[in-house]
């Protein structure tokens, strides 16, 4: 598909929407004793783009979102954590989408779990402490729940927002 003006505009809006969602998320306090548990609202945009366009567009938008969000609200460490999470979650979701056997809800749940796994792997690398993996069960559980929630909303967006060429 040639990059049309329409597609370019859509990707630009997607980046903006994903960043706003990331920002809004910082206002939602999640009072749990495990770092890394969050709603993952920006995942909505990724789920939407994987279904409506293709995984490459979703990856491009996620990459720009991760970079800009880290520059504006984060630091080098938060960049490393979000990048690891985004890469792994995109890989898993692209793979699941390519099978055509799952709905956006299931794909989103697996993607959220992969995101959390990516963050744990990055934490083990950065801190050199294998015991961070102790949080793995909690983060798989929370990823499943938050992934299902964002996936359900994503599925609604996919069916309600038409994209015509």
């Amino acid at each position: 598909m040639k990059t049309s003006t329409k597609k370019l505009t859509l990707l630009g809006i997607s980046v903006a929407a994903a960043m706003v969602l990331s920002y809004i998320e910082t206002f939602i306090p999640v009072s749990v004793a495990v770092p890394g548990i969050k709603l993952g609202l920006a995942n909505l945009v990724t789920v939407f783009l994987i279904y409506k366009l293709d995984w490459k567009s979703a990856a491009a938008v996620a990459a720009i979102r991760v970079l800009l969000t880290a520059l504006l609200f984060g630091n080098a460490a938060s960049l490393a954590y979000s990048a690891a999470g985004a890469v792994l979650s995109l890989l898993v979701m692209a793979l699941i989408k390519s099978t055509c056997r799952f709905s956006p809800v299931g794909m989103s749940a697996a993607g959220a779990v992969a995101h959390n796994a990516g963050q744990i792997i990055m934490a083990v690398i950065l801190m050199g402490v294998g015991e961070i993996a102790y949080w793995f069960p909690m983060l798989v559980l929370s990823g499943t729940v938050t992934g299902l929630a964002t996936g359900a909303v994503g599925a609604i967006l996919i069916s309600k927002i038409p994209l015509k060429d």
């Binding site: 799952f102 809800v105 798989v140 559980l141 499943t144």
Partner: peptide
């Protein structure tokens, strides 16, 4: 398939 996937994820956590 979604349900199977979610059950698998929960089994992994457990």
């Amino acid at each position: 398939n979604d349900i199977i996937l979610v059950v698998a994820l929960l089994a992994l956590a457990l």
